[in-house]
Design a protein around this nucleic acid. Structure first.
Lengths: 338, 338
DNA sequence: CAACCTGATGGGAACGCTCCCACCCTCGAA
DNA sequence: TTCGAGGGTGGGAGCGTTCCCATCAGGTTG
């Protein structure tokens, strides 16, 4: 019964006529091996089809050669939000060429959070990427305490102490609103993301800044809070129209919310952009397909994914370096909704 | 310098005044432990904040408590295709309540394929989920050879030998085309997915079947091959209009391709649905936002994710059972494009 | 020619766990 | 009273690596 078990380093050593240590050295690229020994080992490896057991290696090196991407979101958002897919793609790109594996962890409730805590405490990964952080998220603090290398996509607040990468949310939002001002819009409202996320704050601030520049008042009635969902965008739009029937422009802090706003505007018989102009944020796939196609702020989401990965790999390679903070530029994509 | 190292099972044993084995038994829920001993161990664990080292455990049990989700796609598709996000969400749901971790592996080129092969050969996961399989994909064969538990979302061919789950692609496509027939459309074309994917085949077959039922000829000129991308859908539509200027309906094998088709139709000044009716497949987020909103075949993608996960867990739990084959139902969602 | 270095090598120990097995104790049956 | 059964227990071995250290050959130095 040829259920031959997998060859180990010992098998290889025996076959190559050398000691275990020499095989290990070849495996790890040590220069302290003679050419003959190296050749013999390599032949043996090839003949046996030997693959090192990385679990055993992990046990002694206490590295896992894997990182976790943690997405702490209510189940609904991954999927409707193309943002996450793009981040994943970027992370995967950043990992290409390394031997590092990507663990994907969706945290939906407290139970999953507890499980993740144990998992991280057990140091089953070499580092963590954290996406979509909320202000009072306990995870960043835990990670800091554990001393586990961490990079955030986004930040808890402008005073973020951990490594983090985000796009220029303030500037992007400002550009969007400036664009509306230039188009001659008089009453420019905004639909914001969740109040406990810095990304929502920043985009709101960009809106406010641009209005200030233009000498307009950023009246509180013009601000409608939502939650980055389509339904939230719809509801926010409804509220705005009730409070300010005369508004002629809306800046939504995400494309998905903008799509909801468009739906509500259509339902109420307002024409876009004739009656109301709409700008989104993200330049996700939905922006190209809405009716009319959406003017939006493009942010380099995939590049965010790649960058957080690179920072994390650096941090894992040489821990305790200076905390990094990278801001990536945005650009306005003008379509037919303005 | 309190850089106290993490407690091990030995530390706990000493503190609880028992042997290592007893601690291990408590950890693994063995009934052969007295109540006092169990209590003592649990107290010690709590006091020390002990977390078992799963790497060490893996080394001896040769289980990894993780599975891989392999997405063998050219980089462009994850992200534009909401399909993958939904599968991921379903998989994550299926894993909730287990201790099993999800590894996400994007395979974009041969190098990454080789790396994955080594990874799987080293049995660094307990099982594999494979999504978006192509007919001549070498991976399923490799997995079969390795005897690694595997479940496919989709299948290589109707004769698939591995566990697999897919939606009723033939039936869904047939429903879509029947719907077009009922709407009185005379010349119904189709835009297909890649010829080397069964999912494309099946949807094509559904189109053909429905035409047959209606006593129409499934003329080859009405078939435009594409690749599940928007640009592909656009090009296919252009080709169809050149060959058959008189067509009045198109069934696209995915929403994203349908969106491309819509764009091309608009460019050429054809009205949808007045001149040409369009049906997509997936009921992804784009379908709701196209202009006009897209009639499409809903498939339960998230459920596919959950189901493949459940099958995989079962297979891992008791290997060598009967190969499973699950088909999930689709439903037609009628919107304004037909 | 002795003392020393330097490169190449291999065995022992350790990483933290599970599992096998031997042991002890208590109990009920013969 | 003796014996066997069986629950509860703990020590040893082993999982497949890496790392530390001792060893050895060969060459260089004074």
């Amino acid at each position: 019964m040829g259920a031959t078990r997998r060859p180990t380093i010992k098998t290889v050593a025996a076959r190559a006529g050398v000691g275990r240590t020499t095989v290990s050295r070849v495996l790890n690229g040590s220069p302290l091996v003679s050419d003959e020994a190296r050749a013999a080992v390599q032949t043996a490896i090839a003949e046996l089809g030997y693959v090192p057991n990385s679990v055993a290696r992990s046990l002694v090196t206490s590295r896992t050669d894997s990182i976790a991407l943690v997405i702490p979101e209510s189940e609904s958002r991954l999927g409707s939000e193309p943002y996450f897919s793009a981040v994943i793609r970027g992370v995967s790109n950043g990992l290409a060429g390394t031997q590092i594996q990507l663990l994907l962890t969706l945290v939906r409730d407290q139970r999953e959070m507890d499980q993740l805590t144990r998992f991280l405490t057990a140091r089953r990964v070499d580092g963590v990427l954290l996406v979509s952080v909320h202000r009072d998220d306990p995870l960043p603090g835990l990670l800091e305490e554990l001393g586990l290398p961490t990079v955030l996509a986004g930040r808890r607040s402008p005073a973020e102490s951990l490594n983090h990468v985000h796009s220029d949310n303030i500037g992007g939002a400002r550009d969007a609103v400036r664009h509306l001002v230039e188009r001659g819009r008089r009453e420019i409202a905004t639909i914001t993301g969740p109040a406990d996320m810095d990304v929502a704050d920043s985009r709101l601030r960009g809106w406010r800044d641009a209005l200030g520049e233009a000498g307009r008042e950023a009246c509180g009635e013009l601000v409608a809070p939502a939650d980055f969902t389509e339904e939230g965008g719809r509801r926010a739009m409804r509220g705005l129209l009730e409070r300010r029937p005369g508004l002629d422009a809306v800046f939504a802090a995400s494309d998905v919310m903008a799509a909801g706003a468009l739906a509500e505007l259509r339902r109420q018989g307002r024409r876009v952009p004739d009656d109301v102009a709409v700008v989104g944020f993200d330049d996700s796939i939905v922006a190209r397909h809405t009716d009319p196609p959406l003017t939006t702020v493009r942010q380099p989401v995939e590049e965010i994914g790649r960058t957080i990965t690179e920072l994390l790999l650096r941090e894992i390679g040489e821990p305790g370096g200076v905390r990094q903070h990278v801001v990536l530029p945005t650009s306005l994509v003008v379509r037919d909704s303005t």
